[in-house]
Amino acid sequence: MAKIESTNIANRKFRIVQTEMSRVLGPMFIALGIMSIAWYAPTAHWALNDSIFRDAMHRWDVGVVVRDLRAFLEGAVFIGGGIALLRYPQRTGIIGVVALLLAVIVIAAWHTQYGWQLDVAKSRQSLSMLIGGLKAPAGFLAIFVIICHMKRMRMRAGDVPVCINCGYRMRGLGEPRCPECGRFYTLHQFYLL
């Protein structure tokens, strides 16, 4: 019972970090999505009028459709993820899902454009497109991994305050100062650890 209670206290405090993080990332996702769609809008007109694109739509050629509508799809994923984060700020998994979907879109578009032939795939333009496209998914995946790691550390420590600088478990102290690294905390900061 005591274990469950202490986990609940740790959980409650970590939820504040998660909520605040989601409230920063949510609007950021929406802005990135709007920019992607606005950027795509002028080119969408050409893609939709292109006979190759129409033919691909007719044949359900997903690769060509993803390649031509890439910015629009990325925008839709960003906006959807941003709204979901604002609606459910404690579901950090949304960030991982967004990163994964973006990576799938980028790799599908890259594969359609260049294929798996190594000589082409090794070429500068091909690798440049792949790395440039994977910038956003990799960044958001890093966020997801770090939040999961922090959550696991927090849960493992239970209700013991953990120094945010060095990870020392600060139990049984006389003053709010980490004995390991010497970091000072105000009482409010110490309470939130």
Binding site: I16, V17, E20, M21, V24, M150, I164, R183, F184, Y185, T186, Q189, L192, L193
Partner: peptide
């Protein structure tokens, strides 16, 4: 250290 909130520090 005092001027940094732990929540802000973490995110």
């Amino acid at each position: 250290c005092r001027s940094v909130d732990p929540i802000q520090f973490q995110y």
